[in-house]
Nucleic acid binder design. Structure first.
Lengths: 138, 138
DNA sequence: AACTCTGTACTACTACAAATAGTACAGTAC
DNA sequence: GTACTGTACTATTTGTAGTAGTACAGAGTT
């Protein structure tokens, strides 16, 4: 199964995250949710740069990060492809990242006056499509 | 009930958040968890700056933000005090912030290979002390 | 071989945010 | 007055994000 997809990605100026992070998160989300499958080819660095009207360097940086995290495989002269599911982060690093994410989330939500039930329900709704979209990463 | 507390706050160089945000989140957490009560006096701008070995301007900025968010009240010449519980954010703003927090959290957690149950349990554990530490904000 | 696509690696420059440093001023208490 | 409080400035430094431009190597097509 190998396709070339137009990559449904939107950048938002309202989003406080830097462009590079928006792209990284966006691609990761598309893969995790199963909208992109292992072997699929991604838009070229220059192509996506033109599509999103950002600098090619910015795309290259985001792609490079995704490669080093094991989400993409790069083949010189050919392009970038969605990698087979695998886990490149150490157990300690995974644990550390989860802790950071939870701390940041709690810090943001404190004082917003939402009940525990509301918060958990929302998390569940948004997270569910990301967890079963692709096989469990080895 | 009015106390002057030494403010148990630690800054971490490992924490990716800027100093100002670490202080804002830290104070908000102390209030939400009930470690600081309405009326309690906070360390002075210069005092906390010395304690944390950061610039007084940085503390003043953090305190200023907390005042504008309604967490603290300022009395010229006297100091800063924990405000009575109230909600200064509009319904739309609260909703927006929750959405941003959830989006950011999901983006970080995707690919870490944690089960839904694990994630929800962790959130519940860390968030619980923040929700019942003080009366519901009007 | 020539051409054109791919990723990758640089340097240089600009823009912006965070933090520091220093000064100054107004309000409160002793 | 003196010594604390918060607050408001300006100036400077530092680090990061993004843009701009160039260059090079690998792969496929003609």
């Amino acid at each position: 199964m190998s396709r070339t997809v137009p990559l449904m990605l939107r950048l938002s100026a309202a989003d406080p995250r830097p462009i590079t992070k928006q792209i990284i998160d966006g691609v990761r989300r598309l893969i995790a949710s199963g909208e992109l499958h292992a072997g699929d080819q991604l838009p070229s660095v220059r192509g996506l740069a033109k599509q999103l009207t950002v600098n090619p360097n910015t795309i290259a940086k985001a792609y490079g990060e995704l490669v080093s995290q094991g989400w993409l495989d790069s083949r010189q002269g050919l392009g970038l492809f969605v990698a087979a599911p695998r886990q490149r982060l150490s157990e300690a690093e995974r644990k550390r990242r989860l802790q950071l994410a939870i701390d940041a989330f709690v810090a943001e939500v404190v004082g917003l006056d939402y009940s525990m039930q509301d918060v958990l329900k929302r998390i569940e709704t948004e997270l569910a499509p990301m967890l079963d979209g692709r096989k469990r990463r080895a």
